[in-house]
Nucleic acid binder design. Sequence first.
DNA 1: AATGAATGAGCCTTCATTCAT
DNA 2: GATGAATGAAGGCTCATTCAT
Lengths: 216, 216, 216, 216
Amino acid sequence: MHCGDETEDRTDVTKLDKIARLAEMAEAKSAKRARKKDELADHAITALKQLGYARTSLRDIAEMSGVAVGTLHYYFEDKVDLITYCVRRYKVGFVANIAEILDADVAPEQLTKSFIKGLSQSIEHDAETHRLWYDIRSQAMFDPAFEEVVTDIEDGLIGLVATYLERLGRPTDKAETVYLVLDACFRFHIQAFLKGQDTAPARFERKAVELLAPLL
Amino acid sequence: MHCGDETEDRTDVTKLDKIARLAEMAEAKSAKRARKKDELADHAITALKQLGYARTSLRDIAEMSGVAVGTLHYYFEDKVDLITYCVRRYKVGFVANIAEILDADVAPEQLTKSFIKGLSQSIEHDAETHRLWYDIRSQAMFDPAFEEVVTDIEDGLIGLVATYLERLGRPTDKAETVYLVLDACFRFHIQAFLKGQDTAPARFERKAVELLAPLL
Amino acid sequence: MHCGDETEDRTDVTKLDKIARLAEMAEAKSAKRARKKDELADHAITALKQLGYARTSLRDIAEMSGVAVGTLHYYFEDKVDLITYCVRRYKVGFVANIAEILDADVAPEQLTKSFIKGLSQSIEHDAETHRLWYDIRSQAMFDPAFEEVVTDIEDGLIGLVATYLERLGRPTDKAETVYLVLDACFRFHIQAFLKGQDTAPARFERKAVELLAPLL
Amino acid sequence: MHCGDETEDRTDVTKLDKIARLAEMAEAKSAKRARKKDELADHAITALKQLGYARTSLRDIAEMSGVAVGTLHYYFEDKVDLITYCVRRYKVGFVANIAEILDADVAPEQLTKSFIKGLSQSIEHDAETHRLWYDIRSQAMFDPAFEEVVTDIEDGLIGLVATYLERLGRPTDKAETVYLVLDACFRFHIQAFLKGQDTAPARFERKAVELLAPLL
DNA sequence: AATGAATGAGCCTTCATTCAT
DNA sequence: GATGAATGAAGGCTCATTCAT
């Protein structure tokens, strides 16, 4: 029937509209939830980088975030979920930062310099946050729950080095080796910086050059 | 009087004897205590290498050692004292082991091979214990209580590399750099081995050679 | 526009309403918490008056209160906080009770009688609770954590005596002296009563009259 | 038989001798043990007056005495026995001190002055030790194990006041009352002195005179 | 006579997690 | 969507006491 058809059509349209609107709302909701999660994570990082994984309680984080403890569990499965989310978020940002430096249009010899400078500045400004990464990486040796995030991040870091080698016109098959060397150097000087040695960033730069030279 | 003198002499001798015996007993007691401490530490390491610092309770360790919790506190100041004692004990043993290898009377080219082989075998046999060291080293970034033991051990490891370079007839001023590189490589492959990758020790050997070559 | 203004006004009203309601809820919540605290304290006093400060564990109190140990710590900072809250609460109630007696419209000679009677009855009915006060007062000689609550309560007791003297038409500058004497007498007979001497309350009354007479 | 008699006699003499010598030795031994107990008690008091009954462990006392914990249990039944021994020993000494003052051949008006002076000086010099007495007296309200020593000492103190009244030519039936008043005053000013009020001893003297006057 | 190793119950406190609202 | 009250297991640590030597 005409009437029926028309009605059905209209109904369909209405239904589709509703669904579309619902989907839209769901998306908006989900986006809002994601924003809130990130906001909570940022506060959590502030707490975590000061005390480390084992010593920071959800209460500490809740207090620092200005929300109730229950809220934390509303957004994150459990403590491990929260911590991995935080570490991932921080380290992804770090990788993006360095990637940006590697994206600059500079000569190869200049690239190494600015690359190392970027890492050195991160030692100076974010030593406390990086130690959180080393903490989690150690935990992962005992607790499989941390394995995934550590592997993902470490892959990202190796990828970063690959990008660096690419931009240098070098084969990327040594990315892992170069990462290993740079990471050792990075970690060692963060440790020194945290012990109060203010010259650690500068020493890192010299040592990194010394290590990189024979590898390239 | 003669008699008096003799008596005094005898008394003196007796006194000295007593003092000597007392000192002997005190020493024996102290030695026994040290032995017991080491025995407890060995049990503790067995527990710690399975769960790591934060996840292993003194109760766990006591149970594993077959003693009461109180006994642990009778021998160790607190948990930190116990853990640092364990890590130190294990790592000193490890350094001694490797040092023995470096002490062998072999040609330089052979030395590197046996050195790396020693490390590779330690990955295979003691991966779990080594991760305890990496755990504590990370904790030291947050907790100054671990700083001393970490510094001491790391100095020992650098010293080990210096010995290696010496035996090779190389200047030892690059010991720190070489240590950094080897440690990064070592840690990375322990991590891989613990993730179930059985080829990690072999891969470590190849990677170590690759890294060492340009540095020597 | 008229319309706009009106809408804004309405919005403002709504906002104010919300704020008001929120404030109300916060207040209600805080009141509820205070009520719960008092309820827990009352249970705690029941436990504490039986065993005293050092011998009563938080487990004992939790069990007696029918809550988990954690709940106690949710409402009170630590054991000292809980105990001082209890002692303060009890003693403030006691002071209020006696103050009520002193508020009665009776002749001066009658006042002393009813005052002493009130104290005597408190010996008979609350000897166990009062000993908790004497316990804490002694602890305060060693632990500064108890100093404040002891000073506060003792000031309140001296104030009580001052009220009594005032109602008697006497100068209040002897309040401290009279308090000292009455307290010594009170404590001594509570001690006797707790040793099983049932005549202690009656003896307290006679002794108190004997002590007060020359002071007034 | 002769022989037998003689032998028996000799035997008897020998036996008696032996018994006598044994008794002598036992006495000497017992005296030595008593001396050692007192020596240990004196060290214990030093520890106890600083921390109080509940906060002082046998380990603390052993360390301060320079003996092993086991030794403490060799001389004292248990902790309560040790503490009561200490308190009794100290307070008996205190009573003897004051009794000596009361024994002096001075005029009655002078006696009150020197009596109060003696108490005031004990506040100044031994406030810390006296608080141990107040601590135990409070504990006695909860723990019958302390009842006896507290009663004994309190009787001794009342007896001291009786001696004072006697020397003053007053009836001793008010000894308990006067003790109560003096004790209240004494305790209050010890408390004040321990809170850091240096004028407490002087204030005690004035207050004691004020309180004693109407009672005599 | 004196020791000190060993105990294990018990203490206070922390914390991730749950759930009714 | 967010809260925070409530939990209870678990943690590190203390301590009076026992006992073989």
